[in-house]
């Protein structure tokens, strides 16, 4: 949106230009972080693919994974990406209340996802299928757990920024943070596509 502003309104003050330049630099820096994170996940996926058959006589994905639960988790994350998108739309319109409402909805959907995943992990550990059982389960908990940790961090971030929106309003600094949080949140949804396509669906098959 900033590039459109720059094109449509050439008479920017120097302060505005500096602010926009620093915003773009921050977005680029955050983008580089996301790309390095993508490489970490790619290697965890590769590790999982190598280890997925090594179940040491223990339970396999077929015994442990439930298709409906994964589907509901997927829908939670897809919906939360969409509701965060709505928050970004209203952020561009500088309308504080809808931004806050959609952030809260996104938080609840994300929390629903983390809750379901936590109960899944808990159930697996209780069934003696914890990460210490086999190479398959170690790789599973590392990959899916790293994603779950990212989502939990994203939830903390949403909570902090919602408070900032409430206290400070939609200042340029808060808006720029919300934009980067959006990149992070959508990125996690992309990682989840990989997880259900590589871990859960082949596991059930």
């Amino acid at each position: 949106m900033s590039t459109q502003d720059a094109a449509g309104n050439p008479a920017m003050t120097i302060e505005e230009e500096v602010a926009e330049h620093s915003r773009d630099e921050r977005v680029f820096g955050f983008w580089m972080y996301l790309m390095s994170d993508a490489i970490i996940f790619a290697l965890l996926f590769a590790t999982y693919a190598v280890m997925s058959g090594r179940n040491a006589g223990g339970p396999t994905g077929h015994d442990l994974f439930k298709l409906t639960r994964t589907l509901i988790e997927t829908i939670f994350l897809l919906l939360s990406s969409t509701t965060f998108g709505f928050a970004s739309v209203f952020l561009k319109q500088e309308r504080l209340r809808p931004v806050l409402v959609w952030l809260v909805v996104t938080f609840l959907l994300g929390a629903g996802f983390v809750g379901m995943e936590t109960s899944e992990f808990h159930g697996m550990v209780m069934k003696d299928a914890g990460p210490d059982h086999s190479g398959f389960l170690s790789a599973f908990f590392t990959l899916v757990g790293t994603h779950g940790l990212h989502v939990s961090m994203g939830l903390c971030w949403i909570a902090i920024l919602s408070i900032q929106v409430l206290v400070r309003g939609l200042t340029p600094a808060v808006a720029s943070r919300l934009y980067r949080l959006g990149l992070f949140w959508h990125f996690l949804d992309i990682v989840w596509i990989g997880i259900f396509s590589v871990v859960y669906l082949p596991g059930v098959l």
Binding site: V89, F196, L205
Partner: peptide, 27 residues
């Protein structure tokens, strides 16, 4: 606003259809 919202809804719809096909094939 409507246009941007519609874009997100289209994205959600496409993602949902692709997900549904993958899960249906597995089930």
């Amino acid at each position: 606003t409507d246009h941007m919202m519609r874009n997100y809804i289209i994205g959600f719809g496409l993602a949902l259809v692709l997900t549904a096909i993958a899960f249906a094939l597995t089930a």
